[in-house]
């Protein structure tokens, strides 16, 4: 009926064709170079501005003094670790259902980035916790669920490297990533569902943040800078993954010859 006519319409076919172009490793390889460079330089600029602003020029906090400044690293890293995990799971789903290799390449190369962000969030959290709470670490729901996220990342990393054929690793890791998505709402709502030592979120969609504007601007800039840097980093890593995994195709051989890597 109308369903079958929609799937056969020229609009849908053009959309599919456009989407398929994006899923071609060669197309992605060529496009990601200028795109990654632009995003990377923009990220660097925003990160330098926001971090210098936040760490050196933003005013001190009424209770915490200078120690609150680690928020300019802690929160962006924590946000990124969760956003990257969600992206890995979405890419895994696309890879599993539509068998798109590029989705797997991008997911695989995002794992180390997400893992380092989760690690950074935990370390900066500990450094922040000691002077404010009086403890490096407590087993409350927020901290524990973030630790679980780091372990999930390490699990993805291990699965990718444990398999003889990289394709099996891709599939196994995609399933683990999808199963682990349940941890994301647990991290997010842990501070509301249960009593935790960790404070609730400052940034919410529904209300104005209880943070002074002089701190909020560098804070939001730092989050943007982290996001852009992660995108640029993921593009860069994925380019290498494409060259390695597509090394038997003619275009990748030519590119490797050009780079002087295929001796």
């Amino acid at each position: 009926m109308w369903q079958s006519s929609f799937w056969q319409s020229s609009f849908w076919k053009n959309l599919v064709r456009w989407f398929h172009k994006w899923t071609s490793p060669k197309w992605f390889y060529n496009l990601s170079r200028p795109l990654g460079a632009w995003i990377g330089w923009l990220a660097l600029l925003i990160l330098v501005v926001s971090l210098v602003w936040g760490l050196a020029f933003a005013p001190i906090e009424r209770l915490q003094g200078n120690s609150y400044r680690i928020i300019f690293i802690h929160v962006p890293a924590a946000f990124l670790s969760q956003a990257i995990y969600a992206a890995i799971a979405a890419l895994g789903l696309i890879g599993l259902v539509w068998r798109i290799k590029l989705a797997f390449y991008l997911a695989k190369q995002s794992v180390p980035i997400g893992a380092s962000m989760a690690f950074l969030a935990l370390v900066t959290g500990a450094i922040w916790g000691k002077p404010t709470w009086g403890a490096w670490w407590v087993w409350d729901a927020r901290l524990t669920s973030m630790l679980v996220l780091l372990f999930l990342y390490l699990g993805l990393w291990a699965l990718h490297n444990a398999m003889e054929r990289p394709e099996s690793g891709d599939r196994a890791a995609a399933i683990l990533a999808l199963v682990g998505v349940v941890n994301l709402p647990i991290i997010k709502f842990s501070v509301e569902w249960w009593n935790t030592l960790h404070q609730p979120a400052t940034l919410k969609f529904t209300e104005a943040p209880p943070m002074h504007i002089s701190m909020l601007i560098p804070f939001l800039l730092a989050i943007l800078g982290f996001y852009l840097a992660a995108v640029a980093w993921a593009l860069k890593r994925t380019r290498l993954e494409i060259l390695q995994r597509e090394r038997r195709t003619q275009w990748a051989r030519d590119e490797l010859d050009r780079l002087g890597g295929n001796v």
Binding site: P59, E61, Y68, I71, G134, A135, L197, Q199, H212, M215
Partner: peptide, 17 residues
């Protein structure tokens, strides 16, 4: 045997407060 401080999600400069 141990006391931990809990802080809230509000960040304000002292002058503003």
């Amino acid at each position: 045997s141990e006391v931990l401080a809990k802080h809230d999600e509000t960040y304000m400069p002292p002058e503003v407060t």
